[in-house]
Design a protein around this nucleic acid. Structure first.
Lengths: 196, 196, 196, 196
DNA sequence: TATGAATGAGGCTTCATTCAT
DNA sequence: TATGAATGAAGCCTCATTCAT
């Protein structure tokens, strides 16, 4: 019997699950595959997670939390809307690039009944912060006078397209800097956006 | 026994399959579900399609062909790049809105081994036509002097984001006109894009 | 609709069934295959035969009758046991060679509940005639004094082995003349069996 | 849950499979039947065997190996061709009697695409050894001067007929000693075959 | 008499989950 | 905490058989 601390085992399972879910999608991934990848027995998985759904949800939550921790501070800093927005997009895109496969499942498998609330809630929260930031930018005169709601949606839209394109055509990916420039060009009062 | 012509049954199955695949994804969709939706017996599906994969591939091919027929004429018309591009985006987005769910599978389940070639080929072809159109626009002076490759990617990227957002937040969808304006604003030499 | 006389259709089905059953065995053969081979629709088969089993049994009966018609006259001719036996074996082996595949099913698929009685009855009858013939031969002095029962069994045994070997190693088949000679050598009072 | 060691379960499945395949043939046998016979769940069979074909092939291989182990030493002993041949036939027939049903499938279902090579190879090897033995016997003067190839075929032929007859008419089986005597009588230079 | 679309039981197989060890 | 054999529901698919035409 391979004795390990519980935490270590759980961590192994999580990593294995990310890998396997990412490669196969939720349905096609099997507990056996995850267990094997984690060098644990199938039964072992059930010590740490109630079931497959529970395991998947755990991953999603974790990733959402990670992304939140990464972006919230930036979005909350309303002193420099222009740079904040630039930094926000950069971070989201970097994060997406790192976790692209899981994000695809996360998005695609919205069709599933579970996990939706979690994701929708995050999306809503994120959008609301983005709207606030844009409003701030307009107020401060850094941004042109656009509908903040629509602008936020466009930004999100472009970020999603970026992630998506990354998965669909990984051999010819879009450039994140190009995306950021496009957004800033449309929003900014300044001529163009030289990078900091 | 519910007597119908073969063509009628096949059509019913196709429609049912689109619905079920769209709602559940490829793996989670079952033949039984599709059959039930088509008001046919499970065995009946196999009269018209070799197997589940065959049925799925048929749908994808059909949709790709439809979209191709819709967009090719526009992209090939190089006399008015500005309007052509606008019209192209409009059509793709309209099409996407109509078939959003299936498109999501089509994109997400690229990870599957089958159907990839089909899709990749289409994507490549579409992009190449887009690049040509942009080059033409630059030559004619309608567009600013950008890298046509990158511009094409950005356009595709934005379209994808549009589709994606449509699926993720159907209750608060992005506006296609907004997307189109964003692209044209970035490309066009003209001040803004008043719609025709 | 392909109009034919009923008899013609039935004949076509029978021929097709022999072919398909021979090639695939009872279970693996499908009504659809048989119908296709007979250039008729699957439903058409059921006009002439109650079901698959009924069709199979019909074939078996037919073959048994054919073989019976071929061998009975020979076995019943007790005036020349030696030549009769030789001729009997020759005919059975020829028949077997012509219908080897079907015979194999017929034998192997004894395990099935149906058709057994039919076959067993024939086998019994045939054996009893063979025993009579041998007795006659012993009485007439043509054959040595053996146990007629055992001799009959050996003959049947050898014939079966012949058929079997024909199927198992068709590229290197046993020779029927060799088998016949072996039997006659054991039975006959005469030195060897020169062929008639 | 009925806890057993893996080896025990596998053995149970193998025994059940032999029984069920023997009684029904390959096609008609179902995994469910085998599982039930083995007192295991249908899914349990797949722990030990990849699929039905794999299970069947395993049995065939096992039986071939068993028979090979039983007969090879005898056939290889060329010092006493007469007794060796007698012993060989005795062993094959005994073995056949013990495993008659499976052997019937093994032979009949040659028509299947799988397992053929296995069987053909064994048959070829066995025949070649038999030919060598007969040659030896001719050289040593124990056997009369026959064509070794043909003689080997006749022996195989008779053995097969023996097995076959055993299955077809188990209530009135042929006698193995009779078969052996018949062969030896044909081959031997000695008058008759008194048993050793 | 003939068709062939349709049915649905049933076969093979997978896999989330359980549980004796 | 960990194992992995075992379960059984459920999915895909086949095919004997039926029946409206």
């Amino acid at each position: 019997m391979n004795r390990r601390s519980g935490i270590e085992s759980k961590r192994k399972i999580i990593e294995a699950a990310i890998k396997v879910f990412s490669e196969c999608g939720y349905r096609a991934a099997t507990i056996r595959m995850i267990a094997k990848e984690a060098k644990i027995s199938p039964g072992g998985v059930y010590i740490y997670f109630k079931n497959k759904e529970d395991l998947y949800l755990f991953l999603v939550k974790e990733k959402i939390r990670e992304l939140d921790e990464l972006t919230s501070p930036v979005l909350k800093d309303k002193s420099h809307p222009y740079s904040a927005l630039k930094e926000y997009m950069r971070r989201v895109m970097d994060f997406a690039r790192m976790h692209k496969e899981l994000i695809m499942i996360h998005s695609r498998e919205l069709g599933f009944s579970f996990g939706i609330d979690l994701k929708r809630e995050f999306i809503k929260k994120e959008k609301s912060m983005l709207v606030d930031l844009i409003k701030e930018g307009i107020k401060s005169g850094e941004f042109v006078d656009v509908d903040p709601e629509e602008a936020a949606k466009m930004i999100t839209c472009l970020i999603r397209g970026y992630v998506f394109s990354f998965v669909v055509t990984p051999e010819d990916p879009p450039k994140s800097e190009e995306c950021i420039r496009m957004v800033l060009r449309g929003l900014s009062r300044k001529k163009e956006g030289g990078d900091g």
